[in-house]
Design a protein around this nucleic acid. Structure first.
Lengths: 137, 137
DNA sequence: GTATATGCAAAACTTTTGCATCCTT
DNA sequence: AAGGATGCAAAAGTTTTGCATATAC
């Protein structure tokens, strides 16, 4: 992702937008809150206002560059929309986020929706529990 | 549900709690925000403070009497925990909430979790789209 | 040069908390 | 009588907005 993605989205290539994009691409942690992004930039010589970070992330979401998640109890987090669609497992002990795809689940969502004459536009599936490391043996 | 459910949950039988319980049981709409509950009580001779509604709903959640949902973009909503487990479809046009259960989906959640050595404690599956009435033909 | 973007501070909105008072047991 | 529950107002946390200034094209 680079400035051409911004242009395509109808967004001017500005330093704040490039910085946010770069954080999203290079951060070790894939799911970041607006404040996470803001804080990563604080060390930076020219940091951004938190309001700008929110505005940029919202524009990115509208442009389809990022996906916003509202996981339980947390503030909103954002991830780059650069992978195939996937759902999430979240470890309630260490916070780790595991991404997964399950075609059977996807298919059955469609089937159950059809059964109710419902047209799916989007869905959100999140499993909460403990990961390999955090599950007591 | 009545005062005995409160006692069992270790909660004193108070008027505010009974009122909230009664709203949850008798409201036409099943999924209510704290403010929805608060507003239904405003006409009432003795209404409750919003803070009390939040406290009561939180206690009910801890006691397992209600389930709290954080649907996308909305404030938290609460529903009585009096049905079997189920997931939700939400019409993004009319706000209607349809409850459903799909054993295949449940099963495949377990399978995919196992594959990742993940132990599910809870999950949240919500389909967003348009219902029968709101889907353009 | 013009339109759009940003920064800052203030506002908005949801939810929680402190504390004095009241109610249930 | 004692402990827990409530109301009110204030605080906290997250996200949005108004407006003057700065920046991209």
């Amino acid at each position: 992702m680079d400035s051409s993605d911004l242009k395509q989205a109808g967004l001017k290539t500005t330093l704040p937008r490039l910085k946010v994009l770069s954080i999203l691409e290079n951060s070790k942690i894939r799911h970041l809150s607006a404040e996470d992004v803001y804080r990563e930039l604080l060390n930076d010589e020219t940091s951004l206002g938190l309001a700008t970070v929110y505005r940029v992330l919202t524009q990115f979401e509208e442009a389809g560059l990022v996906i916003r998640h509202n996981f339980e109890g947390e503030k909103a987090v954002f991830e780059l929309n650069d992978l195939e669609h996937h759902d999430h497992m979240i470890c309630i002990k260490c916070g780790r986020v595991i991404e997964f795809v399950d075609p059977s689940i996807e298919r059955h969502q469609e089937l159950v929706a059809e059964r109710h004459d419902f047209t799916i536009q989007d869905h959100s599936l999140t499993l909460y529990g403990t990961c390999k490391t955090c599950t007591p043996a």
